[in-house]
Design a protein around this nucleic acid. Sequence first.
DNA 1: CTATGTGAATCGATTCACAGCC
DNA 2: GGCTGTGAATCGATTCACATAG
Lengths: 223, 223
Amino acid sequence: MIAGIPKATAQRISLYLQQAETLRERGQATVSSEELAKVLGLTATQVRKDLAYFGQFGRPGVGYQCDELIQHLRRILGTDQVRPVALVGAGNLGRALASYPGFQRRGFKIVAVFDNDLQKVGKKVGEHIVQDIAKLPFVCRRDNIRLAILSVPAQAAQNVADQLVEAGVQGLLNFAPATLSVPAGIAVAAVALSLELEQLGLAVKLRQQPQTPAAEPDAGAPQ
Amino acid sequence: MIAGIPKATAQRISLYLQQAETLRERGQATVSSEELAKVLGLTATQVRKDLAYFGQFGRPGVGYQCDELIQHLRRILGTDQVRPVALVGAGNLGRALASYPGFQRRGFKIVAVFDNDLQKVGKKVGEHIVQDIAKLPFVCRRDNIRLAILSVPAQAAQNVADQLVEAGVQGLLNFAPATLSVPAGIAVAAVALSLELEQLGLAVKLRQQPQTPAAEPDAGAPQ
DNA sequence: CTATGTGAATCGATTCACAGCC
DNA sequence: GGCTGTGAATCGATTCACATAG
């Protein structure tokens, strides 16, 4: 529960936005809570309750207007304006992320790529030139960068995180398989690729030997 | 709640394993629930309750033995033996994932890489030769592949998912920004890179203008 | 004295049931 | 008739309090 919004609700906003955008691309003008719920594996009540936290922008008898919904959700997420992001670590994964088109399309722009390997500094990655990590504090402050992506090896992650926080970055998206410790007030989200696979493997395993004989009606959980 | 284990608990098992492995590498022989809780941002009670679902393997007055804990958690996750994984989509992201060392280290082995682009078929990606997606059914069945990673464009994702399910795959790790619909009994986990950034941006934004004047004690949530 | 394991109590999130609007 | 918004009820997860073991 942050700022009056339940955590669980906050985590679903992005899903609603993604789905609304998909539907609009298909030329659909409005969408009902029922429809959103079905495709996202939620209940209609849940969708309505979530959306109602941000004011009433559905019309009884009609549903939600896709355009309006998208605009509204973007404002909530703060992606109605472009946000600059720094990327640290120009290894395989970092290079892939640097040229990942999805970020741009959703309101994020990677404006700087850093690495501590001087062999990589000066080389091009997508449209960016890899910069020496020593320049990080200067660049982050100059460009008012609040968000950063960490795609560095696990051993380096904590050190890089400290530098980023020192440079005024307030949110870290961590791809390194390491648990970061940061000061209160700094947000960290971990994308743990191996852990995701583990979870998936576990889900598959548990479905094979369910204690409950009945199959879970729930088709494919956490999308 | 699957097979007697609360969902929330299942999602934390991987975290415990990761932390136990880190601690063992540092030469630590035992760990207390208190210590695990602190570094993972949980409470000690929660850790104990979670671990207790799988039997009693902690020692009062001492804590949990790292070795024993790791072995136990690996068995639960099914990563005590190597699991073969297929990767579909040899674009930037797919290539990075194909040579991501973390999968191997945690019990997963990518045994085949597919793409539908004939320009890519036959080329090397890491240690793998990209295969025509038409061979997918044959290879998946031959190698008894249960898990697959999708790193294809959003438009192609549903079609590829259908092919994978048809080929007997039971768990999909989806990197495409699209919501997949799959038959009941198939597990899907989505790694939505943009959505992760959105969540992070939202967390930062909400912390800036908290309705509750007191700062959340919770340092950096979902690790 | 330290640390686990667990029933009981609390807290938060989901679902139900229905009033109100198009 | 179809669909939203919301208090009340239910359900699940977290925390508390404490009995028990090293």
